[in-house]
Each structure stands twice: as structure tokens, then as C-alpha cells.
């Protein structure tokens, strides 16, 4: 299946037409949270991203699949401005950040949450200080910091670990603390860089549930980089709702509701080889995709 390639700056109405949402509620929602336009990036002679174009709309989760070295994590680094493209444009909330300086990017990054592969927690800081990091840097008074840190740790079910050091946490707990840290300040964009890699299936499921909660209950736009198909199955076929008792439960899409706010994008050698729904991905006849899905 062909990739979405945009060669000219799209108007708002064009953005709206390509949104996974069937109905666009206002002009602001029609502006993509993240947009890549013909992005090219090479390290020495190796082209990592080759004329990459795609959009992530407001409230949408874009799952990026692909083998190792395919350029998946590079996309996230470009959104954060940790890398700069050789060609093309990167837009966040409709603003072109391609040529932003490090100082300008600092302001953009304050509105984006990032969950790293291994959590990337600061070893010398406790769980509390890790989660409170962004607030401490902004000089927020301590009496406002603690309730916010506890709220975030409750969201990831880790309030009991507040005084622990990162070394005392399991791999899954580290990722969840990483998610709590990324969510401080309620960012409307969250980037997940292989957050379930190397985790046991129940813990990986917990991480996916957190991503679903963010998508369905917090209206967060996200990029979820992974190479595990069970992540795709969870995120594309289940959704989070709050039941009558106020508890968050997860239901499968079916006759009552069909999820349209999650899309899959598959990459190979820096190019998009598929973009669409998980059902379309499974139906694809591309040999690489079929081998990826089967695992052999």
C-alpha cells in the first residue's frame, strides 16, 4: 500500500479530510498535532528517512511498525528536535519547527511528553524527583509539586514507589515511572519509543493500557513506536471507558463502536510501506508485511 506523500502545504480542509476522525469538531482539531513533509535524513552515506510524509491528527495514536534500524525512533527524535532533517519540514501543532534553535525547541518540548525505551530515568534521583523533574526545573513551589507527582504516579499505579530509587525498580516499573514523568504538565502530544521492548506480556499490556487511557480519556495525540504485533492488537481494537463506578475499564471494538483514532504505519529502510488501519495491515499482500506479521 502506498505511503501518504504530501508535496505542497495542505490547507485545513485537506487536513480534515485525511483525519481519522470522521467528524471534525473545530478548526483547531483539523490542524495535525504532528506532520512530516518530505523529510529526508541521512547519517553519512546511509539514508535513514527517505522523503517521509505523514500526519498525526489531534487525539490520534499513530503506531509505527518496522524492523530494527528502519528509522522508527529517528522519527521521534525529529519531532523533539533532538535531530534535524537534511530536507523537508517537521510541523508540531501546525508550526514549522524544522529550523528552530535549541532554545526555541525547549519551549516546544515543554508541551510534548516522551517515553523512552528503557525509561531513561535519572539514576541519581528518586522516583519522586524524576517525576517532579519538569516542575522543579520550572521553579514550581514544592507544595504544588507533590500533589501533581502523586496524581501522575496514581495514573500509572505506582504511588507506593514514590520514595524508591530507579535501581530498585523492575523494567516495567521504570517504564511506568517514565510515562508518569512524561505526563507531568498534561502534554497533548506523547511519544512512545518502544515502551514495551523486553517486557513480559502482562507488563507490556499495562503499558498499552496506559497509552489507550491517554488516547481515549485525555485526548492525547501520540506516536507509538513498536515492533510487537500484540501492541497493535491492543491499541487498535480496544478502548478505555469509565464505568458507572468511576473505574477505568477496557472494551473491545465491535458492533457498538469501531475505533478510528488509531492508525498503523509500517516502515522499511526509511520509507513508509503501509499506512492505514490494523485490519488493512493484516489484509496486505506485501511479502515483507506478511513475514513481519507471521514472525517468520
Amino acid at each position: 500500500m502506498a505511503a501518504e506523500i504530501h508535496t505542497t502545504a495542505p490547507t485545513i480542509s485537506e487536513n480534515a479530510a485525511e483525519s481519522t476522525f470522521q467528524e471534525v469538531d473545530d478548526r483547531d482539531r483539523a490542524i495535525p498535532a504532528i506532520e512530516f513533509r518530505n523529510v529526508v535524513l541521512a547519517f553519512d552515506d546511509r539514508v535513514v528517512l527517505n522523503k517521509l510524509s505523514f500526519k498525526v491528527m489531534k487525539g490520534e495514536t499513530k503506531i509505527i511498525l518496522g524492523g530494527s534500524g528502519g528509522g522508527k525512533s529517528t522519527i521521534i527524535k525529529l519531532v523533539l528536535g533532538l535531530l534535524k532533517p537534511d530536507e523537508g519540514q517537521v510541523l508540531v501543532d501546525g508550526v514549522d519547527i524544522t529550523n528552530y534553535s535549541e532554545q526555541q525547541m525547549m519551549r516546544v518540548r515543554k508541551n510534548i511528553g516522551m517515553v523512552f525505551q528503557e525509561g531513561a530515568l535519572f539514576d541519581s534521583l528518586s522516583v519522586y524527583d524524576n517525576v517532579a523533574y519538569r516542575l522543579h526545573e520550572q521553579g514550581v513551589p514544592e507544595d504544588e509539586v507533590e500533589p501533581e507527582v502523586r496524581r501522575m504516579l496514581r495514573f500509572v499505579n505506582l504511588e507506593d514507589a514514590i520514595d524508591k530509587m530507579p535501581i530498585e525498580l523492575s523494567g516495567g516499573m521504570r517504564r511506568r515511572v517514565g510515562i508518569a514523568r512524561a505526563l507531568v504538565g498534561d502534554p497533548k502530544i506523547v511519544l512512545f519509543d518502544e515502551p514495551t521492548a523486553g517486557l513480559d506480556p502482562p507488563t507490556a499490556r499495562t503499558i498499552c493500557e496506559l497509552a489507550m487511557k491517554l488516547r481515549d480519556l485525555e485526548d492525547v495525540s501520540s506516536i507509538f513506536v513498536t515492533h510487537e504485533m500484540n501492541n497493535v492488537q491492543y491499541i487498535c481494537s480496544e478502548y478505555a471507558v469509565v464505568d458507572e463506578d468511576g473505574k477505568v475499564i477496557f472494551e473491545r471494538e465491535g458492533e457498538r463502536l469501531c475505533l478510528t483514532n488509531s492508525k498503523v504505519m509500517m516502515m522499511r529502510e526509511g520509507k513508509i510501506i503501509f499506512s492505514g488501519t490494523d485490519e488493512a495491515l493484516r489484509r496486505s499482500e506485501d511479502q515483507y508485511i506478511q513475514r513481519f506479521l507471521r514472525g517468520h
Binding site: 533532538l82 523512552f116 526545573e137
Partner: peptide, 9 residues
């Protein structure tokens, strides 16, 4: 990278 992502130089 995490430090930069959290808005710290």
C-alpha cells in the same frame, strides 16, 4: 535525551 526532551539544556 530525556533531559533535553523535558526542556532542560
Amino acid at each position: 535525551d530525556a533531559m533535553r526532551a523535558l526542556g532542560t539544556d
